[in-house]
Design a protein around this nucleic acid. Structure first.
Lengths: 196, 196
DNA sequence: TTGGATATATTAACAGTGTTAATTATATTA
DNA sequence: TAATATAATTAACACTGTTAATATATCCAA
C-alpha cells in the first residue's frame, strides 16, 4: 500500500515541521514532546507512532537544516570569488547562519545524543559541514598549487575547531559580549589561519 | 553571630561537595536537586535555604574545579620547561583534565546559564582559563622577544577557540572516534598554531 | 450497507525534573 | 519551662519523556 506510506510520510512531516519551527524560534529549551505535538495538531503520544523517541525526531531535522544552511551560504556569497577569499566568505556566512539561529547551533553541536552510534553518519556530516561547504574551493586551491592536499586538510581541521569554539563561546557564553567584537575576532582568526 | 555563619558555610559545603562528586562521577545528567540533597544528607527543599536555585549551586563548583584543573596541570608539566614548549605541555594537560572529567567540561562550556549576567565573572574566568594557565609563559615569550604582545593575544584567542572546538567534538560528539586520533589531532593543531 | 478486524489516536499513568508553600521539628532566648 | 525564631521536611504544582490501556477511525469482506 503506497497510499499508507504517503500518508505516513505526510504526518511525519507535520511533526518535523513543528519541531523545526520550535528550534528556529524559541530554541531547543522549548522543544518538548507535548509542544511539538500541539503544534503539529496531534496528541503527544501520537508522536511515538512515527518516531522512536523525541531525540530521534529532533535529529531528523538536522539534514533539513544542513540543506538550509548551504542555501544560506550560497545566497550570502558571490559566485565570482575563488580560493582563499571565497573560503573566508563561506565560513563567514556559515557563522552568520548559526548566530541567526542559535537553536540550530545547539542542535548541531550541543545537544546530547544518547545512542551516538546510531546517529554516527548524521554527526559526521555535522562535523564535516564547514569542510563540505568549501569543497570546491579547497579543490581549487590545490589545483592552483596555492597549497598541498596535506596543508588543506590541516587547515580544514583548524577552521572546523576554531569556528566551533568561537560559536560555542559567543552563542552559549556571550563571550565576547558585543556582536561586533565577535565578528572582528572571527575575521582576525580566519585571516590568521588562511593568510600565510 | 559568627557561629551561625560557620554552620551555614559548613552545610553549603556539604551540598557543594555532593554536587562535585556527582559531576566528576556520573556527569551533569545525574546532577539533580534530589540527587544532590540525598548525597548531602538533607531533604531536597533544604537546598533552597542555602542556594537560590540548582544552577546557582552547580556554578559554585566551577571555581573549585578551576583550582583543581590548575593543580592537575602543574602536576602534569615539568617546571624546567619554558616558552612555546611549556605552553604546549600546559594545554595538553588542560585538555587531558577535561577528557578525564567530561562532566566538568559540560559544566564549564555546555551547561546553559539562565541569568548569564549574574554569572558573568565566572564565565569570564572559564573563557580565559587556558590563557591564565599559560600566563607566565606568554610573558616569557614576550620578554625573550619570541613574539610581540599583539601576536601573543592573537595566539591566545586561537588556542582558546581551537581547544574548545576540539574538546567539544571529541567529548560531545565522539569525533574523532579514537582517543589516540584525538591526541594526534590536538598535537598537530597545537604545533601548527605555535610553530612558525 | 453492515460487521468485524485492523490500524491509528488519545487519555491515563508512571517516574522523573525544578521549585514553592505549608507544616513539622529543632534550637535559641526570655 | 514557655515562647519565639530558625531550620528541615513533606506536600503540592507544573513541567519533562515514555508506555500501556482505551477510544476512535479506517478498511475490507460478506
Amino acid at each position: 500500500m503506497v497510499k499508507k506510506e504517503i500518508q505516513e510520510q505526510r504526518i511525519r512531516g507535520y511533526f518535523i515541521e513543528a519541531t523545526k519551527e520550535l528550534l528556529k524560534g524559541e530554541g531547543l529549551k522549548s522543544v518538548s514532546v507535548r509542544n511539538i505535538a500541539d503544534r503539529a495538531g496531534y496528541s503527544y503520544a501520537t508522536l511515538y507512532n512515527y518516531f522512536n523517541d523525541a531525540k530521534d525526531l529532533i535529529f531528523v531535522c538536522v539534514k533539513d537544516f544542513q540543506v538550509e544552511c548551504a542555501a544560506f551560504v550560497r545566497n550570502e556569497t558571490t559566485p565570482d570569488m575563488h580560493g582563499i577569499e571565497k573560503i573566508k566568505a563561506i565560513i563567514n556566512a556559515y557563522v552568520k547562519y548559526f548566530v541567526q539561529y542559535p537553536g540550530i547551533f545547539e542542535l548541531f553541536f550541543l545537544e546530547k545524543v544518547a545512542d551516538i552510534s546510531s546517529k554516527q553518519s548524521t554527526i559526521e556530516t555535522i562535523y564535516y559541514l564547514a569542510d563540505s561547504l568549501c569543497y570546491e574551493e579547497w579543490a581549487y586551491c590545490i589545483a592552483e598549487k596555492i597549497m598541498t592536499k596535506k596543508e588543506s586538510d590541516s587547515l580544514k581541521a583548524q577552521i572546523r575547531n576554531e569556528v566551533a569554539g568561537l560559536l560555542l563561546f559567543y552563542i552559549n557564553r556571550r563571550q565576547p559580549e558585543k556582536y561586533q567584537d565577535f565578528v572582528n575576532l572571527t575575521q582576525n582568526q580566519l585571516n590568521r589561519i588562511l593568510d600565510r
